[in-house]
Amino acid sequence: MIEAITAIDINTFLNSSLGENAWIPGAVLFATWETIYMVFISTAVSYIVGLPLALILVTTEKGHILENQRINDVLGAIVNAFRSIPFIILLILLIPLTRIIVGTSIGTVASIVPLSIAAIPFVARLVETSIKEIDWGLIEAALSMGANAWQIIRKVLIPEAVPSIVLGVAITAINLVGYSAMAGILGGGGLGTLAYYHGYMRYQTGVMWITVIVLLILVQLIQVLGTRWSNQVVSKRR
């Protein structure tokens, strides 16, 4: 709603001065919205899958509450394998899968598939690090009270890691902003598509610069919000 209204206002304002370039503000706003939408959904999906993976990675480690060397090794290898594929190649490799899931490999909805799949192993490692920061003493204390593994995960590992996990969300979302621009080049929509088709293919350097500035603002915004969110959680506990 807000985007639409602002777009119209700016359009009417700029129509007089920009002439044939009058389409640009509306297009940029729409592309920005598409990018935010892709990043938001794929961040959410990657955490829904990545968080449990991180918990498995941590708790199946040697000496931990669900020690299982086999699961740990296999999962670790899979995560590493996905992380070692460059995103641009993953994007192409996943086209058939995207078609099966979404029905098409073009557009913002289709981009969410490779973006999420690329982010899941990243999130798994990121959250793993957050959880490992927790002092073992807390886990030991819970064990000494007779807690089972699930109680430790739910009542100790997750709540204690929240401030750090939240910072990780910002890092992931910022990464996904970058990835979404790459997906845009392959017809994924958003600011990437705009920059590529207009800024690069049609030599509209102005459009290119506008998308760069919008991306810059977007990234700053995500970082500021992430840091504020984390600080909020921490300061509540002080």
Binding site: D135, G137, L138, E140, A141, S144, M145, K155, V156, P159, E160, V162, R237
Partner: peptide, 12 residues
């Protein structure tokens, strides 16, 4: 059991 470094949950 009580501990040297208390081991209280900072989230609670």
């Amino acid at each position: 059991m009580i501990f040297q470094h208390f081991n209280l949950l900072s989230s609670r």
